[in-house]
Simulated scan of single mutants.
Amino acid sequence: MPPLPRHAVIREVGLRDGLQSLPRIVATEQKIEWIRAAHAAGQREIEVGSFVPARLLPQLADTAALVAFAKTLPDLSVSVLVPNLKGAEKAFETQADLLLVPLSASLEHSLANLRKTPDEVIAEVARIRAARDASGAKTLIEGGIGTAFGCTLQGHVAPDEVLRCMQALLDAGVDRVSIADTVGYAGPRAVHDLFAKARRIAGDRLWCGHFHDTRGLALANVYAALETGVNRFDATLAGIGGCPHAPGASGNASTEDLAFMLAEMGIDTGLDLPALLDLRAQVARWLDGETLHGALWRAGLPNTFARASKRDALTA
C-alpha cells in the first residue's frame, strides 16, 4: 500500500451543493460573509454557485456577484457548476477559475437532472472546450461523474460505464475529472476499487472525490480514496446538501468533520478548525430550522488535539 498523501485540499461546496436543496433563500450578503470567513479559516478552493436559470434555482441567482467577490480574495480558486454551454459562457465572462460540468453515469438520473443522456453531456463538454479555447478564457474544465456507485432512480451503475464516461470526458477535452457518490451508496471497498482503476486512466487528472454521508460512510470513503493517492475532496459546512433529482440523497461529507479527521491523521489541510466551527455556528443561525449534520460541532475539539496544535505551533 503506497503512503497516504501528506497534504489534502477540502473544496467547500456548501454554497452550491449545500444550499441548492433548501427552500430558504440565503441573502447574498450572508453568502459573501461565508466566503470571507471560509477564506480566513484557510480554505483556498470554494464552489460559490451555479450558472443555471434563476427560475429553476433562485437560491443560486446571485452566482455572478459571488464570483466577483470571491475573485478579490488572495490565493482563492473560485469554481462554479454549469449544466451547459450557456452556463459555461457565463463562467468565462466572470473569469471563474474552474467550471464543473456534471455528468451522471446513470442514464435515468442524467435524464432527470440535465435532460440529456451521458453521451449528449459529453458532446456538450466538447463544445464547451471549443468555446473556451476560442475565447481565450483561462477557466479550467472539470468533468464530474455523478451516481458513480449507484442511483436511486436506476439502481445499479456499472463501474465500466463510469470509466467509459471518464475516458470520454478526457477525450472531449476536460482538464480534470472527479467522481461523486451522489446518493451515498458507496462503501470503502467499492471506492478503493473504482478510484484505483480511474487513477490508472486519468492519473493526476483525477482531481477530486465527492461523497454523500447518507449512510454514514462519507469519511470512510474519503480514507479509501486517499489510499489510491487522491487528495482533494468536496465537502459542505454542517454536511448540508443533497440532489433535487436523486430521492434520498441527503447530506454531504461535513467540512469540519473531514478537516478534523485529516488533521488527526497528520494530513495537512491548512485549515483552522476553531475558525471553521465558529463559521459553522454562524451559518447554523442563518439556517435555523434546517437539518444540519456533523459530529465535531456537538462534541467539540478534544483537549489532546488543542495541546498537539499548540505544540506544533511552538516547534514550527
Rank of each mutant, 00 (worst) to 15 (best):
Q43D: 01
R200W: 01
L194M: 02
T117G: 09
L287E: 01
A112G: 11
L56Y: 15
A316Y: 02
A295G: 15
H245N: 12
V101M: 06
E33M: 11
D160L: 06
E89M: 15
G216H: 03
A70L: 06
D171Y: 00
V9E: 14
P23R: 06
A180V: 10
R189C: 07
R129A: 14
A249G: 14
Q154L: 03
V174W: 00
W297N: 15
P23S: 12
V174H: 00
L76A: 11
S106I: 10
P302G: 11
E108D: 13
F233A: 02
L100F: 04
L271S: 09
C243Y: 11
G187D: 09
R205F: 03
G18N: 05
A88E: 01
L114T: 13
P53M: 07
R199L: 14
A220F: 05
W207T: 06
R16N: 08
G14W: 06
G187Y: 01
Q167D: 13
F149N: 06
A96V: 03
D160P: 09
R307K: 13
L296Y: 05
W207N: 13
R115M: 10
A41Y: 08
P244N: 03
Y185S: 11
A91V: 07
E290G: 03
L206F: 04
M166H: 07
G155L: 05
S106E: 13
A249Q: 09
A253L: 12
E227M: 10
L206R: 00
T63D: 00
Q30A: 12
E120R: 13
V222A: 08
G87L: 04
I179R: 01
M261I: 14
R232W: 10
P58M: 11
V26H: 03
R127D: 04
V52S: 07
L217P: 05
G294K: 04
D272F: 08
D17R: 10
G270V: 00
Q167A: 14
T304L: 15
L237P: 03
M265D: 01
R115Q: 14
G42S: 03
P53W: 00
E108V: 15
I145L: 15
E93W: 07
L217Y: 09
G136M: 06
R55Y: 12
F195P: 07
K116N: 12
H156E: 14
A246P: 15
A105K: 02
M261R: 11
A88D: 00
W297I: 15
F51S: 12
A299G: 14
E12V: 06
L76R: 02
V177K: 00
G150K: 10
S50V: 01
P23K: 03
Y223C: 15
L163N: 06
A137C: 12
K197V: 14
D175F: 02
E89N: 08
L258C: 10
H39C: 11
G300W: 07
F195H: 10
P2I: 13
Q20N: 08
V177C: 15
M1T: 12
Q30C: 10
L271K: 02
R11Y: 05
A105S: 13
K310P: 07
L287W: 00
F233W: 01
T269P: 00
A158Q: 10
R311A: 14
A112M: 10
